[in-house]
Design a binder for these strands. Sequence first.
DNA 1: ATACAAATGGACGATTAGTGTCTAATCGTC
DNA 2: GACGATTAGACACTAATCGTCCATTTGTAT
Lengths: 191, 191
Amino acid sequence: MELDAKSNHILDAALPVFVRHGFRKASMADIARAANISRASLYLSFGSKEELFRAGSTRAHARTMRQVEAALGGNGDVFSRIESAIAAFHHGLIAPFASSSDAVELFEVNMALAKDITLVARATLVDLLAQALADAEAARVVALDRVNSKPVDIANVVVAAMDGIKHAPGDEAKLQAAMQLFMRLLRAAIS
Amino acid sequence: MELDAKSNHILDAALPVFVRHGFRKASMADIARAANISRASLYLSFGSKEELFRAGSTRAHARTMRQVEAALGGNGDVFSRIESAIAAFHHGLIAPFASSSDAVELFEVNMALAKDITLVARATLVDLLAQALADAEAARVVALDRVNSKPVDIANVVVAAMDGIKHAPGDEAKLQAAMQLFMRLLRAAIS
DNA sequence: ATACAAATGGACGATTAGTGTCTAATCGTC
DNA sequence: GACGATTAGACACTAATCGTCCATTTGTAT
């Protein structure tokens, strides 16, 4: 699933159109105009509006998971690396749409058109977090037996917390603060 | 042309919908939803989308002209009062739409549906400015003969400058700075 | 409880906008 | 000029929106 330069250019242009108008009200004409190409040649790159959206979701997920892996492979202790990974996930797949007044529709459409990719990415995130925690446990950096759980359990809770926090009311700053508080709790619990 | 509470409520709700989607893509269903009423009862207040838009434009112009008159009747010298009046005009009738990506469409639709109101307001603005300048001249505060012109000429130039400056590229701050510079020029020229 | 007005959901035909497809014409590059 | 890429424009089809209508519900006053 590699994209040529033109397709990438189109997806770059399409994102803000979807963010502004939502899926239903974003027309192929709008997207073509934003990409400075004709509607005809838009259909040369993507066979349908749904295919285009799916390609955008796929690209965003691929990019984001690369960022997540980089964050987990970076410097710092397990907790700060996990925090960075969560931040990368949020920044790549949630924040861009949070500002949209059609965010709900966009997430629904995404689940309708790219459910597989979305769920795989979510599962991969959990796996990666679990792996990082398992490594830390092996290195005696964390003690998961203190909470009587396995790495994958903790990973699931972390992701679920991120999910819950993102749905809670409040602006971007409050959200980040809540996530950091959660990470401090985690650190205190299993360090 | 008095509006009841419900109509005012609807127009309040409709404005951000028009700003976000433009006229064409803003549906009556969108507006009804924003106003928390049914589409059916939206049509009880306004017979059509065009009538609703026109009512909104009319209300905005009426409110703004009241602000303009208040500014010209306020404290300070002629120049600062004129500056306030221009700012009120801009704040009431231009700034709310400047942020919209469909600003061009909205201004076009406004000229199609509420041209009369818009042109009368513009003419009234010129008249009010000319009146203020004439008063200042009578009080020997300004000397229009220095530029060999009549109050109405100056007023027209001020409004035209505002128009031109608003169409120039740059953000809100640059625009305000440009207008203030223009006012300093005027002050220097006819004080 | 009854009467009345206001508001609603739902359906309607008519109209418009959008989708996806196709072709002939144009553009840019070799 | 030849070539592939891109385009405008038209096409049939579908979906969305408009403006209208009415039966029903909701709220309020009596």
